[in-house]
């Protein structure tokens, strides 16, 4: 694992790395290098299997983190390639030529985060949601509870009391 990381570091600019276990580490690279890094890992280091592709919304920093988690079946190790993309007009190069299954991930990211992958097959079709007209739901600024209460309104007639305020109001009505 260390060897591979060293090898990668000699070829790519790794801005951050985090070794979680002996068989799992995460590397952060620039958006421009991400695709070439995953391609390199796939073609030359045996990380042929894509475990997952997902995004994390770091809304405070205005970034989406994309994680390509690659698995090497022979060495039984995994490398997560992280890259930050801009939250505004989030776009990433599609990698559907590398793995057939990645288009599903990309469709999901398009729908749930609003990250576009131009050229990916069926990218503009609805994947999970149907007729969704709000901000993409997995973004942090989408408040699911609020949306649910406004749209599907819970059954009325429920009320609750906070023990502390209830006690205060009953025991010390004047305080």
């Amino acid at each position: 694992m260390q060897q591979i990381i060293q090898d990668i570091e000699s070829r790519f600019t790794i801005t951050d790395k985090e070794t979680r276990r002996n068989d799992l580490c995460f590397l952060t690279v620039d958006k421009l290098q991400a695709i070439s890094l995953v391609t390199y890992l796939r073609d030359y280091q045996g990380y042929a299997s894509l475990t997952l592709l997902t995004a994390v919304d770091w809304i405070e920093e205005g970034n989406f983190q994309l994680t390509y988690l690659l698995n090497n079946p022979s060495t039984r190790t995994e490398i997560g390639v992280r890259t930050m993309i801009d939250r505004e007009n989030a776009t990433m190069e599609s990698t559907h030529h590398l793995w057939e299954n990645i288009q599903t991930y990309q469709r999901e990211l398009k729908e749930m985060f609003g990250i576009d992958f131009p050229g990916s097959p069926r990218i503009d079709e609805d994947f999970i949601l149907e007729g969704w007209d709000n901000i993409p739901p997995y973004r942090r600024d989408f408040d699911t509870k609020k949306y649910s209460e406004e749209t599907y309104f819970p059954r009325p007639g429920r009320e609750t009391n906070d023990p502390s305020t209830y006690m205060k109001s009953k025991l010390y009505p004047n305080d």
Binding site: L24, F26, T51, L52, T54, V56, Q65, E78
Partner: peptide
């Protein structure tokens, strides 16, 4: 921190990717 944990379900590799940000809720679970 972030991690990916997997186990073998009856269907095959079943994994969870979790990102935490120091708060009491996960940042992202996939």
């Amino acid at each position: 921190g972030e991690t990916y944990v997997k186990c073998e379900s009856s269907r095959g590799e079943y994994g969870m990717y979790m990102v935490t940000d120091g708060s009491d809720t996960p940042r992202r679970v996939n």
